[in-house]
């Protein structure tokens, strides 16, 4: 009966469960879903005087930091007990193999995302530069996938659509133009 817990969940189960974040946060305390602002709250917590942008009472946003921390715990529970596995399409497997990735098992390519590789230029670009762009871009664009794609579109706040178009322009550029060079590094 509980076998489904150990299988990857299909999109029509996962999607609505993700969408439920919107009413859950609204019903608990009228909060709006959006995770990237936590990166700003962490800056505000550590260096409140560095810029007026960080000088505010982050404690009022503690609820969001708790959600953020909870995600890490939820990931650990899933990783330990619910064995996440990925059923990737054959076309993607072929493309990634052609780009030179050897190990296509697991959640992500171990050749790039592991501690052993942390000193390599390739991992620095994927992890450090990638992470930096996520943090910079989400603030400059006023939100990330949760705030714009899920919450923004759910509210039919159309400016969010412009940011989402941006997400895809950036993602497509990196995937189709830069990745062949970066993976070969």
């Amino acid at each position: 009966m509980f076998e489904f817990l150990w299988q990857p969940w299909p999109w029509y189960v996962s999607g609505p469960l993700i969408g439920l974040m919107v009413p859950l946060l609204l019903l608990i305390d009228g909060k709006q879903f959006g995770l990237s602002s936590n990166l700003r709250h962490i800056c505000s917590m550590c260096v409140p005087n560095a810029s007026p942008f960080f000088n505010y009472d982050w404690k009022k946003e503690r609820w969001n930091l708790l959600v953020f921390a909870g995600i890490l715990l939820g990931g650990a529970i899933a990783g330990l007990f619910l064995t996440p596995t990925v059923n990737l399409s054959a076309a993607t497997l072929e493309d990634l193999k052609a780009l030179g990735l050897q190990n296509l098992s697991g959640i992500g390519p171990q050749e790039i995302f592991s501690w052993e590789q942390v000193g390599s230029l390739r991992t620095l670009i994927f992890v450090v530069m990638g992470g930096f762009l996520v943090g910079f871009g989400s603030r400059y664009g006023d939100g990330c996938t949760s705030g714009h794609a899920i919450m923004g579109l759910s509210m039919m706040n159309w400016p969010s659509l412009i940011a989402i178009v941006g997400f895809f322009i950036g993602g497509l550029l990196v995937t189709h133009l830069l990745l062949p060079f970066l993976i070969a590094l």
């Binding site: 994927f126 996520v134 871009g137 400059y140 990330c144 990196v174 995937t175």
Partner: peptide, 25 residues
């Protein structure tokens, strides 16, 4: 900033394969 910020975010999303929530997970 919505479009340029979004584009930069998208580049980071494709590189790391994760947005802020998934990074924590």
């Amino acid at each position: 900033g919505y479009l340029p910020g979004g584009i930069l975010f998208g580049c980071g999303w494709a590189l790391t394969g994760a947005c802020p929530g998934p990074m924590m997970a």
